[in-house]
Design a protein around this nucleic acid. Structure first.
Length: 658
DNA sequence: GTAGGGTTAG
């Protein structure tokens, strides 16, 4: 038997690729079955080899058929451990457990049915393909197990979000006399870090730390990285830093783990300083690094820092792949630049469903409902199948933009894609109807829902009642919210506002009393603005800022100018009972107004002002900002918890839907 | 033959 095999080297490993087998030419004529790593291009310097072992090394299942197993069935080829090993590797790589099952059947009928190394590879194939039941059955059936068998199953559970199952195997493994290695411990630590609450993470994690220390595995870079991540996830940042500092060898992953931990906590400064330190020590940032940092920039709305890190991505010459690109897109959208978000979307090398969902979200946040609908249609046209989040994004976009009919249409169309609406979809539809003023329809919709309405559902109706000043339905909705979630301050404030806007001060006071009695605390409103890389934060009636005198004076000047062109303070947004003049004074010093006055004093004429707020922008400030954008001739972008408002030339992009 | 870090809504 003779065949042509191409032999090539890549990363120091020699690969063999079967190009042609003369004896089985009908089967293999096109089967230039590449290496284990199919992306590696075979070198063309092929040679003629007459070596059966080489053939075995070269064979891999390609396409749909496992031709090589047919050869075994026919008796043309002796079964060989390397053959099974390569076939299983291929199935694992391609995530094709069905093909793997065929190999499994073959192994069961061969001499190797009890070979622990082959069975471990088989176990790993099931594990990596997510077939945890098959993996468990195989594990239970294996009469001979070794430490790798236990580690493979522990890793399987740990990687598929079943941390308790992974951790439960550990004492069993120990009691049977198997000793863990660094592989086992890094997987166990990952599992402990994924437990649902902080004390549990610490309880299991710290014990595993002790175990690792005793065995000397704590200095292994894999163990160290999962160890520091575990500490960070239960809030022990000092311990996480300690583990990192004493780690004798660090790599990109250990750096990324620490950066990601700070980023997740919204500690952008810490994340950025670690990023710089990483660069200075000649470690290459990866997609993981960038992705974490963009996530932190998105949550704090730090456009400038985000742009700076984006510049690093460009400098490093890497392509913007979906995983990192999606976070970058999200970062631009969430820190106020829809243009940049769209540009990233257009430049993404390969878009996935998350990319499209992120773009839809971006449009929703900026009130661009029509663009969202077009985007959704485009994704259907290219054959992408939407998921539940896609619809959530799309419905939110419709709701925010007041696209009533479109929203209802798309909600109904969900069953075409076999997507059962979840509670969030129902909330969005109540919001959609409510914003459009169809309060009775919204109430009917809630009563006819097939699932139990939650506090969020009634909260959406309550918000709509505030918007449309419906006191009766508002207090009814608020009662339902209080029953279901008595500790949220938002609905109390909304109800109090509803009463205040209807001049029912006694009722408003009752709500405040209720809040006090039940210990519900209102989150203090604050707004912040970034000027020359410094974040300046303001709370209402604050006078702690060094420029406060000038800020108050500036606002008084602006206030007088906007009153001349028609601004009338809407005092219903003040929660307390006080006389009209007092209430107007209170309104003057809402945090967003202070932030705006400060920005006007400290930024160049004509430049865009970006303000962020931790709760929804108040109605009076919203009205005032429209006038301000006109008198100062500047674009003002406000990000509140819900969406963006682009104020320009006397109007706002939200079209008063918010 | 077995390992650690990253995304979208609210």
């Amino acid at each position: 038997m003779s065949f042509i095999v191409s032999k090539f080297k890549c990363k120091g490993i020699t690969f063999f690729s079967l190009l042609h087998v003369t004896h089985y030419s009908s089967r293999f004529s096109t089967a230039a079955v590449a290496s284990i790593e199919p992306k590696i291009p075979p070198d063309l310097s092929s040679c003629i080899v007459q070596d059966k072992d080489l053939l075995l090394k070269s064979l891999n299942p390609s396409g749909t058929g496992l031709h090589v197993l047919d050869l075994v069935d026919e008796g043309s080829l002796e079964p060989h451990p390397t053959l099974y090993h390569l076939l299983l590797k291929k199935c694992t790589f391609l995530r094709k457990p069905k093909l793997g099952k065929i190999v499994h059947a073959h192994i069961s009928n061969s001499h190797f049915r009890g070979d622990v190394v082959i069975l471990n590879t088989l176990l790993n194939m099931y594990a990596k393909c997510g077939c945890l039941d098959d993996a468990r059955n195989l594990f239970d059936e294996m009469s001979v197990k070794d430490m790798v068998t236990w580690t493979t199953l522990i890793t399987a559970y740990s990687q598929h979000d079943r941390p308790l199952d992974a951790l439960l195997l550990f004492p069993q493994m120990l009691s049977l006399g198997f000793f863990p290695n660094e592989f086992t411990l890094s997987s166990l630590l990952k599992a402990s870090a994924a437990l649902p609450d902080t004390p549990q993470i610490y309880f299991h994690g710290a014990q595993l730390h002790g175990f690792s220390f005793k065995c000397g595995f704590h200095s292994n870079v894999y163990v160290g990285s999962s160890l520091l991540d575990m500490y960070a996830r239960c809030g022990c940042m000092d311990e996480a830093h300690f583990v990192f500092d004493v780690l004798p060898t660090k790599n990109e992953v250990s750096w990324n783990a620490l950066i990601a931990d700070h980023a997740r906590k919204g500690q952008l400064d810490r994340a950025l300083s670690l990023f710089l330190k990483m660069l200075r020590q000649d470690f290459q940032p990866t997609h993981f690094t960038f992705s974490s940092i963009f996530g932190a920039c998105a949550s704090t709305g730090s456009l400038e820092q985000g742009k700076w890190v984006h510049a690093h991505v460009i400098k490093s010459g890497g392509e913007i792949i979906a995983f990192m690109g999606n976070t970058l897109l999200h970062m631009y959208a969430k820190s106020g630049s829809i243009q940049d978000a769209k540009m990233i979307f257009d430049r993404l090398v390969k878009r996935d469903l998350v990319s499209w969902n992120s773009m839809l979200t971006a449009y929703a946040q900026h009130g661009l409902g029509k663009e969202a609908v077009q985007c959704f249609q485009k994704m259907l046209n290219i054959g992408l199948v939407p998921n539940d989040i896609t619809f959530l994004c799309l419905l939110t976009a419709c709701s925010r933009a007041g696209l009533l009919e479109e929203g209802q249409y798309y909600f109904k169309s969900m069953n075409r894609y076999n997507i059962e609406p979840g509670i969030s979809h129902y909330v969005t539809i109540v919001d959609l109807l409510g914003r459009a003023g169809l309060l009775n329809e919204a109430l009917r919709f809630i009563n006819e829902m097939p699932i139990q309405p939650t506090a969020a559902v009634w909260g959406a109706l309550l918000g709509a009642c505030r918007m449309h000043k419906n006191v009766e339905m508002g207090s009814f909705a608020a009662e339902r919210v209080f029953e279901l979630d008595p500790h949220d301050s938002g609905p109390h404030v909304l109800l109090s506002n509803i009463y205040a806007s209807g001049n029912r001060w006694r009722d408003a006071a009752k709500v405040r009393k209720l809040m006090k009695e039940s210990g519900v605390k209102k989150e203090p409103a604050c707004s912040w603005v970034e000027i020359q890389n410094t974040v300046h934060m303001f709370v209402a009636s604050d006078d702690s800022h060094p420029q406060m005198g000038a800020i108050y004076k500036k606002w008084e000047e602006i206030s007088a100018r906007i009153k001349e062109i028609g601004y009338v303070p809407d005092t219903s947004h003040v929660l307390f009972y006080m006389d009209e003049q007092e209430r107007e004074v209170k309104l003057q010093y809402h945090s967003e107004k202070l932030a705006l006055a400060f920005a006007l004093l400290n930024s160049p004429d004509g430049s865009t002002i970006r303000i962020k707020k931790n709760i929804r922008v108040c109605g009076d400030c919203h009205s005032a900002f429209k006038f301000v954008s006109k008198v100062v001739g500047r674009e003002i972008i406000v990000r509140d918890t819900n969406r963006f408002h682009h104020f320009y030339d006397g109007s706002c992009s939200c079209g008063n839907f918010w």
